[in-house]
């Protein structure tokens, strides 16, 4: 049986360079990624890390960095109950479609039924909606994803 993967595609009215910048610049990610700043030199084999209010949230190794077409990194969530799972992988593919960029986020190498799969299935649509909103209209999504996750648990 194939391992679970999460794929999310959207179309954003922007340029590939602007979208690449939005994915790799800490000042930018902090605005739409619910306070998480990314830092890296974006060299293959080098490290990257997301921090929120100075505390590490996600980290890993840069696997591919083909500006502005493809970015891939390993994904290790820095929380106690996620640390038992192995590294997963996130790949961003950016393709021009006229004046619009098709963005495909693939999160794979996930543990079946693990906490990370649950978290990211709810998380990516929020992050990408917020990113798209910031690039197109200057408005991010005003959602606290931690609170949103708690709400979904309460509903389940």
């Amino acid at each position: 049986m194939s391992k679970p993967e999460f794929v999310y595609t959207t179309y954003i009215e922007t340029t590939a360079e602007k979208l690449w910048h939005a994915l790799t610049d800490g000042d930018f990610t902090e605005r739409y990624w619910f306070g998480h700043r990314v830092a890296s030199e974006w060299k293959v084999g080098g490290p990257y890390q997301f921090t929120k209010q100075g505390k590490p949230s996600v980290e890993g190794e840069v696997l591919e960095s083909d500006q502005p077409r493809r970015l891939a990194y390993t994904w290790d969530a820095c929380s106690a109950d996620a640390s038992r799972e192995r590294s997963s992988r996130v790949t961003f593919d950016l393709e021009a479609r006229g004046n619009v960029i098709k963005l495909t986020v693939t999160h794979d190498n996930l543990d079946e039924g693990g906490k990370i799969l649950r978290d990211i299935s709810g998380g990516w649509p929020m992050v990408i909606a917020s990113l798209k909103g910031l690039l197109e209209s200057g408005r991010v999504l005003d959602i606290d994803p931690t609170a949103a996750a708690d709400k979904e648990k309460a509903c389940a």
Binding site: R97, G98, V100, E136, S137, R139
Partner: peptide, 8 residues
């Protein structure tokens, strides 16, 4: 959100 859809 912006008043205009994606052209495609």
């Amino acid at each position: 959100e912006t008043g205009a859809s994606l052209p495609m």
